[in-house]
Design a binder for these strands. Structure first.
Lengths: 342, 342
DNA sequence: CTGAAAGCGCTAACAA
DNA sequence: TTGTTAGCGCTTTCAG
């Protein structure tokens, strides 16, 4: 592929002029500029990004790390990020950790080497030392998800503990005698918070937590399905299930239906995330919602703020957004309910 | 951040040796190597990717362009791609066109400049001249989706026309007197193929196509909802609806339920894509399935094949996969049906 | 096994 | 306004 040098030679100018029309066109005389542009076109010239990055010490790339792209809540966040960075001419280096620590570590290292201009890390388990490497190299970083006291960083988060609490309390208030919890993967810190909220709600009502009412799923539909089946095999099966995410809640819902039990009459279900799908299953799923797209967009803005101002050493900013219980049918609430499109 | 030069100075060796432990460790004496590695560690050194890319003329990056990340079928494909390229140490530059030609063009240009090692383009409208630019620069390219006769390129595709035909024919065979079609966005070439299949099935049964039975949605749930409402306002509403994707089919399903009509008795519905969600709505959605994840993985493999062999000028390879009608409840089929997990 | 040096393609002083 | 030149950080001959 053509280089700046060839363009220069053919156009009969110096490489500096070519570089100028690329970066500061207004500083080049109109005629020369037209010639150069024509030559570029003829040659199908496109400036080499690596060379440019090297010279400018800037890659125009930001990396986004999510736990699982197959959970629709993450594309939602990703879209928020992409919409913002696209406007600034940045590109997205995307990756999926599958909650695999090794994979997360590898990616973090790679991004360090690639000198990404910024990094957005969603949920997951971000306690590895690798995160400190990022901080040491002063790569602008924004965390999305839960608040992490251990790490002083820019973040956009919601209170998952509160969400878990609200969901459980709602179920309890509705009179469901006992509620079970389907946890997500061990490593997912956000899900651990939800579980704490679940426990707090029980405690508040003086209901002793039962180990056999807490099962762990893989965070996917199938996991929720399996967990619900397990729960219902209990000698004293729960009358309500709170799942750490909608995917598992939907799987649970499917399992309960398979068992020919009525939802919410015999088993009530509440999920977490408010993915679109949750409003379309039958019965519609009550869930805890939070503004995923907005979190992505805000994170990207926050990132650019720190990239622009270079105040990387300044104190980190935190944006706290609210969770909200979205009451639909699956929990057995009898009042007016909010439906899709609401 | 530390450079190879500083490492060399501190370790008391030449930069060549440092570079060697980075690239061909076995060619460096053990002692020297250990020293260098220690220094690298102490300094938190990480080789600059841009410099390396520049020197090697290789970015270890492949770009993936999809129309809409919010449609779960695309993350599915993306996952297939990522799983393969991750193992080879490649990174994914990800982007979403929203079917916006300008955005697609921009991204294509950017990727040209970034000298990505390969490009995977999913669906969408790939007829812009920009695609030729990619070919001219001999950037390995793989198309996922439909077969595009106009472009001789590596591709992994399924026959969407056939899918549309099968879906419509199935509905017709089931005795639904008239079937409507909810089309996707104008620009989505794959959806146009589906529509052709729809027409072929009608024609085969000597059913004259009706313009008022073909409506166009935006490819999302809301679009399907709106389209179905429109269709049912018809003086002579259709008794069956074939939607160009599951998202719209699910929206349609919701609309029909809102109208208090029974599915499939009063209105049968068939979708396209077989996203997971389709097996979880009520009634479960009959749909046309194809191996999205596999397509992504195969595309990545194909890409590496051409990257490795550099036979970019060789004749393009095409991988044709099968569509399959996944019969569930929403179409009114009365025989045995395949359910989720099948 | 090791080092010196050229070069990857571009940007940005600095001079003219 | 334009051209010359010195890097950006790395890889890789080529000598030794």
């Amino acid at each position: 592929m053509a280089t700046i040098r060839e363009v220069a030679k053919i156009a009969g100018v110096s490489i500096a002029s070519v570089s100028r029309v690329l970066n500061h066109p207004e500083t080049v005389s109109p005629e020369k500029r037209t010639t150069i542009e024509r030559v570029m076109n003829d040659l199908g010239f496109s400036p080499n990004g690596s060379a440019r990055s090297l010279a400018l010490n800037k890659t125009s790339t930001i990396a986004l790390i999510v736990p699982n792209i197959l959970n629709p809540i993450y594309p939602e966040i990703a879209k928020g990020v992409e919409d913002i960075i696209y406007r600034r001419g940045y590109n997205l280096l995307f990756c999926n950790t599958d909650l695999d620590p090794q994979k997360e570590k590898n990616y973090l290292d790679t991004f360090l080497g690639r000198r990404v201009d910024g990094l957005i890390l969603v949920g997951g388990f971000v306690f590895s030392e690798d995160i400190y490497k990022i901080q040491n190299q002063k790569i602008p970083l924004v965390l999305i998800g839960r608040k992490i006291p251990e790490i002083q960083e820019n973040s956009v988060y919601v209170d998952f503990e509160l969400g878990g609490y609200l969901a459980t309390k709602h179920l309890l208030d509705l009179g469901h005698p006992n509620v079970a919890f389907i946890a997500g993967p061990e490593r997912e810190a956000m899900d651990r918070d939800k579980q704490m909220g679940y426990r707090r709600a029980l405690k508040e009502k003086n209901i002793p937590p039962r180990d056999d009412y807490v099962v762990q799923g893989n965070g996917e539909i199938e996991g929720g399905y399996l967990c619900a089946k397990t729960l219902m095999r209990n000698r004293n099966p729960p009358r309500a299930i709170f799942a750490a995410n909608d995917l598992m809640a939907i799987g649970a819902l499917d399992a309960i239906k398979d068992l020919s039990l009525r939802i919410p009459e015999q088993v009530a279900i509440v999920g977490f995330d408010n993915i679109k799908m949750s409003a379309l299953v039958d019965p519609k799923l009550t869930t805890v919602s939070y503004p995923a797209y907005r979190m992505g967009a805000l994170a990207a803005r926050l990132l650019f703020d720190t990239i622009d101002s270079k105040n990387i050493d300044g104190k980190p900013r935190e944006i706290h957004l609210q969770v909200e219980l979205k009451i639909r049918k699956s929990c057995g609430h009898t009042g007016r309910v909010q439906e899709i499109f609401s």
